[in-house]
Amino acid sequence: MAREVAIIWWVMCGFSALVLVVISALWIHAMRRPHRTYSPAQAKRWHGFWIIGGGIVLPTASVVLLLIFGIPAGQHMLVLPVEGQQPLRIEITGHQWWWEVRYPDSGVVTANQLHLPAGQPVDLTVTSADVIHSFWVPRLGGKIDMVPGHHNQIRLQADEPGKHRGQCAEFCGTQHSRMVLYVEAHAPNDFARWIEARQERQIAPPPEPAGSLFVERCGICHSVAGISQGQRAPDLSDLGSRPTLGSGVLVNDSGAILRWLQEHQRLKPGTGMPSTDDVAPAELETIARWLEGLAP
């Protein structure tokens, strides 16, 4: 899909560059060439030549061609019915400023990362929990807005396994810039394993007193499978396996979770997560270490 658009782009770009150069050159030539006197009949011929030929025929032919070649290119992103096996469905919900990703067929929930099988079409249903966001993975294709109350659909296909970057494209408030989605396309078997690892997991809570602290303080907004059910903030069940924290703010290497827990308001000003300054450092460390371990 993205490749088709790229081809369209290069054709249009070449053609436009040609038109621009020719028109500018004609214009400058017309200004510089020695003046000639024209009889009214000659002048009339020139009028016709420029206005009908240049002004009407040229642009009309161009846009007709463009429409004929351009419209079919968009058909692939339509969610048309397909024969045989139905495409994988994924539901993505935009939040200020993070992505909620659900796989309804398997019940897997994650956040700020989108994993999908390569080489087959995937149907995404997108919506928003607050303001309008826009789902966009430049390498995979066009964008689609996430509008509260609406459920827009788009069909994407990653041809090869690989990692991509997605970013919210519709201005959505203070941290619009920090709403990045990590996208990874897997070979179908790897994808099946990825899903399987997240299904039916038993997660042990962190040791007390951090355990109850987590449920009381974090669990109100965050959910972790079997431990807490918060809905306002990203699901943390596989946090340790995610490549970034805070929707692309911080690389999730060793110690990053603790840093996020301590400094998130400085790293991502305006984020909805309240300050943790009143939590004892030891408890924070315990929680951070536990979260790092949530990596199926």
């Binding site: 007709v64 429409l67 419209i71 079919p72 058909q75 339509l78 969610v79 048309l80």
Partner: peptide
Amino acid sequence: VFIALPILSMPPCL
């Protein structure tokens, strides 16, 4: 005529 051309080639409600 020009604006109606796509009616010939596209499903209406997708």
